[in-house]
Amino acid sequence: SIKEIEKEEIIKVLKEVNFNKKLASEILGIPLRTLYKRLKEYGI
């Protein structure tokens, strides 16, 4: 599903940037606030 793909992509990017959420949100092209929402939604 799209949610699974998105979750995997978020985890992959977070690992690449050593869990720097600000940098991860910039790489993913989403606002930091949205990233936090996704992390909560996906239980990351």
Rank of each mutant, 00 (worst) to 15 (best):
S1M: 09
S1A: 13
S1E: 13
I2R: 06
I2H: 13
I2G: 13
K3I: 11
K3G: 12
K3N: 14
E4P: 09
E4S: 08
E4I: 10
E4Y: 09
I5H: 13
I5L: 14
I5G: 11
E6L: 11
E6S: 14
K7G: 05
K7F: 11
K7Q: 06
K7N: 05
E8L: 14
E8D: 11
E8S: 12
E8C: 10
E9R: 15
E9G: 10
E9T: 14
E9V: 13
E9L: 15
I10L: 13
I11Y: 09
K12H: 07
K12M: 09
K12L: 07
K12F: 07
V13P: 00
V13H: 02
L14H: 01
L14I: 04
L14Y: 05
L14Q: 00
K15R: 14
E16V: 09
E16C: 11
E16F: 13
V17L: 06
V17E: 02
N18K: 11
N18C: 09
N18H: 10
N18Y: 08
N18F: 09
N18A: 10
N18I: 03
K21H: 14
K21W: 14
K21F: 15
K22P: 06
L23C: 06
L23Y: 06
L23M: 12
L23A: 11
L23D: 04
A24S: 02
A24C: 06
A24I: 02
A24T: 05
A24N: 00
A24K: 00
A24W: 02
A24Q: 00
S25I: 03
S25F: 02
S25N: 01
S25P: 00
S25A: 15
S25W: 01
E26T: 11
E26K: 14
E26F: 13
I27A: 07
I27T: 05
I27Y: 06
I27S: 04
L28N: 00
L28T: 02
L28C: 02
L28E: 00
L28P: 00
L28D: 00
G29T: 03
G29W: 02
I30N: 00
I30R: 01
I30Q: 01
P31F: 03
L32S: 02
L32W: 05
L32N: 01
L32M: 08
L32E: 03
L32C: 05
R33T: 12
T34A: 10
T34I: 13
T34V: 14
L35I: 03
L35K: 00
L35V: 02
Y36N: 14
Y36R: 14
Y36A: 09
Y36K: 15
K37F: 08
K37C: 07
K37G: 05
K37Y: 09
K37R: 13
K37T: 08
K37E: 15
L39C: 06
L39M: 15
L39H: 01
K40L: 13
E41I: 07
E41A: 08
E41H: 06
E41D: 09
E41M: 09
Y42Q: 03
Y42M: 13
Y42N: 03
Y42T: 03
G43A: 08
G43E: 08
G43H: 09
I44P: 04
